[in-house]
Design a binder for these strands. Structure first.
Lengths: 183, 183
DNA sequence: GGCGATTTTGAGCGGACGCTCAAGATGGAC
DNA sequence: GTCCATCTTGAGCGTCCGCTCAAAATCGCC
């Protein structure tokens, strides 16, 4: 189990290669061959460190999402506005990664359970939004806040999708407007 | 150019086979081999009638969308409510087809221009929604109606996506609630 | 029944992709 | 310096998939 330095550095190179490939050309560009090529590693070495290609992709996506979290400590200090801004930032800074994220969720459920993961992540996010909404409006019931959070997140997801079709779409403006109308 | 009866019937069989395969298992199930097998046709015959696999998939999706149009003649008699209901109906009756529709739009732009097609279809739909909204509220400016239509369609798309992750999600309820809040 | 156009078939091409494994190279604890 | 665990490599396996094409069969108009 004790890791060697070499292995740790190789793992980092693989993750970096995957991240840059995904950012440049999405899932289509991040083939195993491309990842290994860019990381300067043979496939066998890759599989010594990761269980599958999906594993490293999931890791990169997760890290990117965590990186824009406005309240990583979960201290309960983020406002709805913060959360919406974080959402917008993720999509604007990592459009290809966002596409990967959605794409994997739409794939048929495989052994890795990407769809289930995605759903769990969404549910946690709904809770965060609902909590922030209640903090901003103390008359809101928990149920009602959850419903509103689902609505707002639904709208944000849809607008982000719209933007991925056409980068001329004023995503951030629409997103903020949706936030105003739905909370 | 004069078609023979045999060719016309074969074409219909291929379309039917594609439709049922897509409905059962989405894009993943509708491989060329599966389509040809179910249509009882060899691949060469398929390519005598269609330019590519994508061509028949696009045709099936388009036909399904047209089939739920509340105002196929474009007479301008449909209300916002009608359009929202039609949207809900499409997703509830053809969940797999809806997934295919979204999936192809998220794919990188190929020679067939699926993404562009998708965008054009979306824009036409925004216009339909905007027109219906103005019919329901004559004080609405054209620009403002378009913005509202984009918002509402964005929300519907996002909620439909949410529902595709988890069929327990009360899609129709949320969709109607979004329509109320956003128009 | 002849004949040109259309349709069907059988066989197979070419390539992408994820992944495996035995054997050798390297690291580092003792 | 030995020795075992960890890491790396090279070669290649198996599969799936969209698509092609020459030749044979069929259609239907005259």
């Amino acid at each position: 189990m004790a890791r060697y330095e070499a292995g740790i550095r190789t793992e980092a190179r693989i993750v970096d290669a995957t991240r840059s490939l995904l950012a440049e050309g999405g899932l289509e560009a991040a083939t195993l061959a491309a990842i290994c090529d860019r990381a300067d590693v043979k496939a066998g070495s890759f599989y010594n460190l990761f269980d599958s290609k999906e594993a490293v992709v999931l890791r990169v996506v997760r890290e990117a999402i965590d990186a824009v979290d406005p309240d990583p400590e979960q201290a309960g200090t983020d406002t709805t506005q913060d959360l919406v801004d974080a959402y917008i930032r993720f999509f604007e800074e990592q459009p290809e990664l966002a596409r990967v994220y959605v794409l994997t969720a739409l794939q048929v459920e495989g052994a890795n359970g990407a769809r289930r993961r995605f759903l769990r992540h969404h549910e946690r996010r709904v809770e965060r939004f609902a909590d922030a909404m209640r903090r901003g409006d103390s008359t809101l019931s928990t149920d009602e806040a959850t419903v509103q959070a689902e609505l707002l997140l639904g709208a944000l997801d849809g607008l982000a999708f719209r933007w991925s079709l056409d980068k001329a779409f004023a995503f951030a403006d629409y997103a903020r407007r949706a936030a105003k109308a739905l909370s």
